[in-house]
């Protein structure tokens, strides 16, 4: 309890400092710190899957994207605020009332009215093909959401490619970095593989594994690999969409066998989920790398 209070207080403090910092680098740095604290909070809330996703994607990769952007943002306009005092007072009042409404509504909801969906998840877990509840929700019970969410990544990639960004100038060869990459990329690869495998029975899964493999790719980009140069190649494009495409094909395919859309035959559910997660991980890692390359972080 004391730990939770301390954690909540430091969350609020870092968020405040990050949101009102006057230096872009500082703002982003504090945002990453906030994300890591948030990952701790998730761990305290018994949500290790979310903690991993928040640390890897929410703090790590988002931080990497923002860090690159912060280098271009170091101009005077960074701390510009709305000037009109009337408007500022109005916005402050708006924020205050929003906070009070949300907080009061949540306080009035403190007593659970019922068990929610959780007992149903436990009851049907054995039929889902996996042993870990969060994975069963993501890849079976609510697989539609996950399919569309991978779709969101694909659309972001399409939109970014359609922007036809100028390519960054090549980086200088850095022997230290190259050595680090040679060590880290295989390690990240193995860890990502482990997380993917673990997802079926404990915290882990495609998104967390994709984030780790994405991080490996980011290291490669730092060492000089130019991802945007490859973005017109069909092989690269196939990797980008293979996750969504496979998921969609399986989801639609089972419906031709007399099942509902996305309904896996119970005996094959486990292996179908494994294969979907495997290809999804590849696409997620590739897409996250594209997002990183496009944010301008690769530019020197």
């Amino acid at each position: 309890m004391v730990l939770d209070l301390l954690l909540a207080a430091s969350l609020l403090l870092t968020a405040w400092r990050s949101l009102y910092a006057n230096d872009p680098l500082q703002a982003v740095g504090l945002f990453v710190a906030y994300g890591l604290l948030l990952a701790l909070a998730w761990a305290r809330l018994d949500a290790l899957d979310v903690a991993l996703a928040e640390a890897g994607i929410g703090a790590g990769l988002t931080g990497a994207l923002l860090l690159g952007a912060s280098r271009h943002a170091a101009d005077r306009s960074f701390s510009d605020r709305i000037a009109s005092p009337m408007m500022r007072a109005f916005l402050a009042a708006g924020a205050l009332s929003l906070t009070s409404i949300v907080a009061l509504a949540l306080w009035s909801l403190r007593k659970p009215r019922g068990p929610g969906i959780a007992p149903l998840v436990s009851a049907k877990l054995s039929e889902s093909g996996v042993k870990h509840p969060v994975t069963s929700v993501l890849l079976n019970f609510r697989s539609w959401d996950t399919l569309l969410e991978i779709g969101v990544l694909v659309v972001a990639a399409f939109s970014i490619l359609a922007l036809r960004l100028a390519r960054s100038p090549p980086r200088k060869y850095d022997p230290m970095l190259a050595a680090l990459v040679r060590v880290m990329v295989p390690i990240l690869g193995v860890c990502g593989g482990y997380l993917l495998w673990a997802g079926s029975h404990r915290p882990g899964g495609a998104f967390q594994a994709g984030a780790l493999l994405g991080a490996a790719g980011v290291l490669l980009q730092l060492a000089g690999y130019d991802l945007l140069a490859d973005s017109a190649r069909r092989g690269f494009r196939a990797l980008l969409v293979v996750g969504f495409g496979t998921f969609l094909c399986v989801g639609i395919g089972v419906s031709t066998l007399g099942h509902q859309i996305l309904e896996y035959p119970p005996t094959q559910a486990g292996s179908l989920i494994f294969w979907i997660e495997l290809v999804a991980t590849i696409s997620i890692a590739v897409t996250l790398n594209l997002l990183y390359a496009a944010s301008g972080s690769g530019a020197t």
Binding site: L45, D46, A47, D49, V50, A53, E54, I57, G58, L61, T62, L65, L66, G68, A69, H72, G116, I117, A118, V121, S122, P133, V134, S136, V137, L138, R142, D145, T146, E149, V152, L153, V155, A156, S159, I160, L163, L165, F207, I284, L288, L291, Y292, A294, S295, G296
Partner: peptide, 29 residues
């Protein structure tokens, strides 16, 4: 044990958030 449904929702939300963040940064660039 915590309810796994909100956890799945949040993981989905995190992925959506980074997608839109990346698009916004690319647009800004």
């Amino acid at each position: 044990a915590p309810d796994p449904v909100p956890h799945a929702i949040v993981i989905t939300g995190i992925v959506v958030a980074i997608s839109s963040t990346a698009l916004a940064l690319a647009l800004a660039r």
